[in-house]
Design a protein around this nucleic acid. Structure first.
Lengths: 339, 339
DNA sequence: CTGAAAGCGCTTACAG
DNA sequence: CTGAAAGCGCTTACAG
């Protein structure tokens, strides 16, 4: 029952070599003779030895642990992102220490401190905002931070997002081209860059077309809030003919609200989301949406983070990745519309 | 830019005390005079000192890290479980190191080895099966393991599940009482205890009522597989009047397939799922389902795991928690049915 | 209460 | 290529 942890010294004794030799055999770059390698490997196998990663971390100053701060796990975008990120990081020899948090800046900051106590080599903050003091501390400690799906303007942090402003514009242009004239926007949380940028893009395009939005409301990235917004829109004197919703998670709520009111999405009212989570493609929602190119966003996140870990002098990056509009049944498609 | 990590020695120097004193001030149980505590806290604050958790882990033999192995993150049950687990563990001072994995036993075992390299204090294996050798190694290393939502029969592991056999029985009784006679079962993966137990319970009740199932197929806990099964059922000569699906994730696929065939769930064919994930309550699916009591399952998992960490001699537990049937619109409700 | 010292399990110059 | 030794940042008996 007692934790029978085998150490390199025990392996050394059994193999008849020094403890340093054992260490070298298990250290990728180091050199050892074939004979030593063989003796050590055999002894290690017999004893069930595996190097203690924590001890290695202490002396090398590398924990091979990446801290992940994430909120909104009920939005399918994040579990999927987590899975991809975890796989990509595992491939490169890193593991994820996960911190879930309510989305207040305070909550996030508290959790970040904890994170740094674990000597993480880098931090991915997904869908959360950092206090600028916290960002500074991470930098002071030499821990690179990349913001995933949030473009907050912190000079010391990298940020990976999709091209949200362009995306918002694209959605508006699509709806306008489809002949909609009473277009409402249930926006993503206006405390977040993604919510702001998508809304700004939407307003850009409306403006360019000489149209005023029927309504713009903050859905807070919350199912409940979005549903409330949708009900309010349906109860108003003038009913929208299209609703652009700031993300898919809220769009599902909006569709549920429309149907509850006896309306058919795509026929009576067009609904467009943002993200293209797997659920958007399922029959029950069949949601037209602006896709965030998750694979490329994850790849960019991992590359940026590991580059900065390997070379602390590398400057933070801000990466924006363009995404396509995915046409499905929840919104009327303009005649001859392509792409 | 260089990682300016502050150590206890530096704090000691500034505070004019020994390094041990600093350590004591930051060690919950230890004793120090008010004056020392004050001096040390001030110096620590000024320097931005926080204890290195990894170093503490090395000497104390406690990493305060729990390893979590999880597959099926596309099934909403798991992200929600992850979030609750993370919160519950954070409350008790533990963090989660996460490993995602394809669900083969091989994949899981490889990942478990990696996990142990990080000196985790305990392991939660959610929705995955362990090789028995691996379970033995974890035990040998003194690392307790609890299987979450999987009741595999490994004497050295604890297991927390809902009462799956009783649940399967309850669903069948409900459908039979509702007057259904052509009842099919798209089962959970038959390589898992949950899939087997729910199916066994279903068959128990069918048997007791003198009914034969119209069909029993393995949906593999996969959306695609389940959809294939549903199509096959609909194409057969005799169409089911009810389908019990092994979990909600598959049930959503089944409902999509029914609707694609022009059928209305709850009117033409009753569909019942298992889990009661949040999506089951959303308007688009409105799924009748057997709820797995997640909060209680998480609480039991955390309690069991931490108990075993604190007292290595404690015997592994197997905990089963009963869940209620949640009535919604996807299945006909028998007259006068209660609970 | 407090400090000097040993030790957790490793990696990494340093000699040989 | 190999071993003895120092050291990573802490905790924890051990004396005082």
């Amino acid at each position: 029952m007692g934790g029978v942890k085998v150490t390199s010294a025990e392996v050394a004794a059994r193999a008849g070599v020094s403890q340093s030799a054992v260490s070298r055999v298990f250290t990728p770059g180091a050199s050892a003779s074939r004979k030593t390698i063989e003796k050590v490997r055999r002894a290690a196998e017999e004893l069930g030895y595996r190097p203690n990663v924590l001890a290695r971390a202490m002396v090398s100053g590398r924990s091979r642990i990446i801290g992940l701060v994430v909120a909104y796990l009920e939005n399918q975008f994040y579990p999927v992102a987590l899975e991809r990120l975890s796989l990509a990081l595992q491939d490169r020899g890193y593991r994820i220490l996960i911190f879930t948090t309510p989305n207040s800046t305070d909550g996030v900051d508290a959790v970040m401190e904890d994170l740094m106590d674990y000597q993480v080599d880098g931090i991915v903050a997904a869908s959360v905002s950092l206090g600028s003091d916290l960002a500074a501390r991470a930098q002071a400690a030499g821990v690179p931070v990349v913001l995933f799906n949030r473009g907050q303007d912190l000079p010391s942090c990298s940020a990976v997002t999709s091209a949200n402003r362009a995306g918002g514009r694209k959605v508006a242009e699509f709806l306008i081209a489809g002949g909609h004239r009473r277009i409402a926007h249930i926006a993503g949380w206006q405390g977040s860059s993604t919510g702001q940028d998508r809304q700004a893009g939407f307003l850009d395009a409306m403006d360019a077309a000489g149209l005023a939005p029927l309504a713009v409301m903050d859905g807070m990235y919350s199912r409940e809030a979005a549903m409330g917004c949708a009900r309010e829109l349906l109860d108003a004197n003038v009913c929208p003919d299209a609703i652009f919703v700031g993300n898919d998670h809220m769009a599902f709520a909006v569709i549920d609200a429309l149907r509850a009111a006896g309306l058919v999405p795509g026929r009576d009212i067009s609904v467009v989301g943002y993200d293209d989570v797997p659920l958007a493609a399922w029959g029950a929602y069949d949601l037209t949406t602006l896709r965030q190119p998750l694979n490329r966003m994850i790849a960019a996140t991992v590359d940026t983070l590991l580059d900065q870990i390997d070379d602390p002098d590398r400057a933070p990056q801000r990466i924006e990745i363009d995404g396509p509009l995915i046409l499905r049944g929840s919104a009327r498609v303009p005649e001859g519309w392509t792409s």
